[in-house]
Simulated scan of single mutants.
Amino acid sequence: MQFGVFTVGDVTEDPTTGRTPTESERIRDTVRIAVKAEEVGLDVFATGEHHNPPFVPSSPTTLLGFIAARTERILLSTSTTLISTNDPVKIAEDFSVLQHLSQGRTDIMLGRGNTGPVYPWFGKDIRKAVPLTVENYGLLRRLWREDVVDWQGEMRTPLQGFTLAPRPLDGIPPFVWHGSIRSPEVAELAAYYGDGFFANHIFWPPSHTERMVGVYRQRFEHHGHGPASQAIVGLGGQVFMRRNSQDAVNEFRPYFDNAPVYGHGPSLEDFSTLTPLTVGSPAEVIDKTLGFREYVGDYQRQLFLMDHAGLPLKTVLEQLDLLGEEVVPVLRKEFAANRPDDVPAAPTHQSLLRAAREADPADRPDT
């Protein structure tokens, strides 16, 4: 099972000091967080994509390419690439380049985002969000898999004799996750193609995530990709830790109360009861995270949000130390216990390459 962190890249005032980092500081701090995530033994770092203030990750592959040069092992992903408003040709090119730069440490999470104005900013009609998603992804798959693409759709100009350059590393496209908080259409798209489904499990109650993952698993099996238990599932999560639980609550409360997304709404205690947010000791984070398996089944990837709402870099790095040293080692052991043999591991470039060579012996280097 893979463990990691994702960022939304918000530039938010620290409510305890009144200081707001510059955009430059926030971008550079994101790089430091990714490097620290590798240092503490995490498997994945992912960034969102936003094109409006107060967010800075408008060019995820630029950021991830820079991080690739400063890391050696960690897998680099997006926590949203906007499939509905980005051109699929450019997505295919950018992620193929990133694959080569990172030597295969790349996958991608596709989604529609949650900012309505982004559609006209990129010349798209939000009323066609679902058809755009379906058509763009169908083209993206072909661009990564076919040497020459002739294509015609309804949402963009046709392609004639188009060849992607560079081709995906080793002929293996990046593994695709489809991310969603509330859209069953996204779960269906992931299931139809046999891709991964990432339920961004940070705002809604467990019952909602259980339904979304259940739909995906059922449809994965319906489309003939294997038993529902073999579907590839990822979850988001949100934590703040100190060794003493009450210290964590006291320190995090002003950040929660003033957070751009959920501030000035439910209390910290109510939100923690109703959603997967965990504020407390490492042991409490372990217990609550292990409970996710009770309603989504055995899954493959767990990402945590830890650097939002104005939290200073020093605090985020301390959180990563706790996550890497005290939480993830226990989660790895406990999630592995009693895991059925038929539940697949999270796909990586190397595992996909091995599978391709086993399926086509002519591709093996020694044949």
Rank of each mutant, 00 (worst) to 15 (best):
M1D: 01
F3V: 04
G4F: 09
T7W: 11
D10P: 01
P15V: 06
T16W: 00
T17H: 08
R19W: 05
E23I: 13
E23M: 06
S24G: 10
R32C: 00
I33C: 01
V35T: 15
V35K: 11
L42P: 03
A46V: 01
E49F: 12
P53M: 09
F55S: 11
V56C: 06
S58N: 12
P60I: 08
F66K: 07
F66G: 07
I67H: 11
A69P: 04
R70C: 03
R70Y: 02
E72G: 15
L75G: 07
L82G: 04
T85E: 10
P88V: 02
V89L: 06
I91W: 05
V97Y: 14
H100F: 10
R112Y: 02
R112C: 00
R127M: 10
K128C: 02
L132G: 03
T133N: 02
N136E: 11
R142Q: 14
W144D: 04
R145E: 15
W151S: 13
E154I: 04
E154T: 12
P158R: 05
L159D: 03
T163E: 15
P166Y: 13
P168H: 09
P168G: 10
D170P: 12
I172C: 06
P173M: 01
P174M: 07
G179R: 02
S180V: 03
A187P: 03
E188Y: 14
D195N: 13
F197R: 05
F197K: 03
F198W: 09
H201S: 13
I202G: 01
T209D: 10
E210T: 09
E210F: 00
V213I: 08
F220W: 13
G224Q: 07
G224W: 05
H225K: 08
A228T: 01
Q230H: 13
Q230S: 15
Q238F: 15
Q238E: 14
V239L: 13
F240M: 02
M241W: 14
R242C: 08
S245F: 00
A248E: 08
P254N: 12
Y255P: 14
F256L: 09
D257L: 09
Y262R: 04
H264T: 11
L268H: 07
E269W: 10
L274F: 06
L277S: 10
L277Y: 03
G280Q: 04
S281R: 09
K288S: 02
G297T: 06
G297Y: 06
Y299W: 12
Y299V: 02
D307K: 09
A309N: 12
G310R: 10
T315W: 05
E318C: 04
L323E: 00
V327K: 01
V328I: 14
E334I: 01
F335Y: 15
A337K: 15
P340F: 06
P344Y: 01
T348P: 05
L353D: 08
A359E: 12
D366A: 11
D366W: 15
